Computed example of a mutant assay.
Amino acid sequence: MQEWLDIASVWVAAAGIFAPLIFLGLHIIRPFLFIPVSVLCLLGGVLFGFWLGSFLSILGLWAVCEWFYWGVQKIPWLHRKINHLKESYGGQRKWTISQLVMLRLVPFMHFHFVSLLVMDYAKTRSAYRFYSLVTIVPTAFLYTIFGRSLTKLPPLVVLGSVLVLGGFILSARQKLTTLAWEEFFAMAEPSKSRAD
C-alpha cells in the first residue's frame, strides 16, 4: 500500500497544476468509465488531502449533476430511460432530503438514480442545484476523509462506520401506511351504520 501511495504522490508532484484539472476531468468522465463515486472521492483524499480533495470532488460531482440535469431535459430517450429506472426501483415513493443525503452516502448507489430523485424532490433547476450540493457535500467529505486515513484505519472501524450508516438509513425512512381501496371503505362502513 505504501508503494502505491508513493507512486501517487510522485504523480501529483509531476503533474503540478494539472493534477487537480485531471482529477476534475476524471470526475466528469467517471460515469462513462463506470467508476463509483466513492472510489474517486477516496482517491481524492489520498492524492490531495482532505480540504483540496473534498473541494475538487464537490466541484466534479456538481458538474456531473449539472450535466445530468441538462441531459435529462434535452434528450427525450434519456429522460424515458431514467424515469423507467426510477419507476422500477423507486416507485412512487416520496423521499426526504435526509434520505437522499444518505442514499448518496451508500458506496455503490447509482449516482444518477439519486440525481433523478433529487430532481423529483426539487422541482425547479435552482432548487435542484441547491439540493444536489446539499447531497454531494457530505458524500465528498466522508469519502475524502476515509481516503486520507485509509492506511491508518483498522478494519473494525470501517465495518462499524458502515453499520452506523446503515442504521441511519433505516431510521430516516418515511413511515407510511398503505391501505387498499376495499380496506379503507370497509373501515368507514361501521361508523356509517352507527350514524343510521
Rank of each mutant, 00 (worst) to 15 (best):
C41N: 00
L26W: 01
R80Y: 09
A13K: 14
E183I: 04
V118M: 08
L159C: 08
I58M: 02
S38Y: 07
I29V: 14
F55S: 08
W4F: 09
L179W: 07
F23N: 00
L59T: 00
D6T: 10
F18N: 07
W70C: 02
W4E: 12
K175W: 05
K74Q: 14
F141V: 15
S98Y: 10
L142K: 07
V64P: 01
I145H: 03
L47G: 01
P36M: 11
K86E: 08
A14R: 13
A63K: 02
S38H: 06
V72Y: 08
A14W: 03
S98N: 14
Y143R: 08
W11K: 12
W77T: 11
S88G: 12
T144L: 12
L163D: 04
L56Y: 01
F18S: 12
L165S: 12
R129C: 09
P20C: 05
P20Q: 03
Y128P: 10
L26G: 02
G71N: 14
V114F: 03
P31I: 01
P155N: 13
V12R: 09
A188W: 08
L21C: 09
W51P: 01
F55C: 04
S54T: 15
W51F: 12
M102S: 07
Y143C: 06
R104E: 01
L133Y: 08
Q174H: 09
R173K: 11
L153V: 05
F130L: 15
L40A: 03
H110P: 05
L59D: 00
K152P: 00
L59I: 05
E87T: 13
S54C: 09
Q2F: 03
S191L: 14
S171A: 15
T177I: 15
W51K: 07
K74L: 08
P20V: 02
S193R: 11
L142P: 03
G60M: 02
A195K: 14
W181A: 12
V114E: 05
I97C: 06
S9F: 01
I58W: 00
R30C: 00
A195R: 14
T144N: 11
P107S: 11
F18T: 08
I22M: 04
I29D: 00
T135W: 02
S57L: 01
A13I: 03
R93T: 10
S38C: 15
L156A: 13
I29A: 00
T96A: 13
F32G: 10
W62E: 05
C41V: 00
N83E: 15
L43Y: 05
A8H: 08
G53K: 06
Y89F: 11
L24Y: 06
H110M: 05
V157S: 14
L105W: 06
I169W: 04
V39R: 02
T135S: 13
Y131A: 11
L21Q: 10
S98L: 14
F108Q: 07
F185L: 15
R125L: 10
S126G: 02
S9Q: 14
G167D: 11
S57T: 04
F130V: 11
L42D: 03
P36H: 06
W62D: 03
V106Y: 03
H110G: 04
K81S: 14
F50D: 02
S161P: 04
S54W: 00
I35K: 06
I82E: 07
W51M: 06
E66I: 04
L42N: 03
G90L: 11
D6R: 15
L103P: 06
I17F: 05
D120Y: 12
I22N: 00
L43A: 13
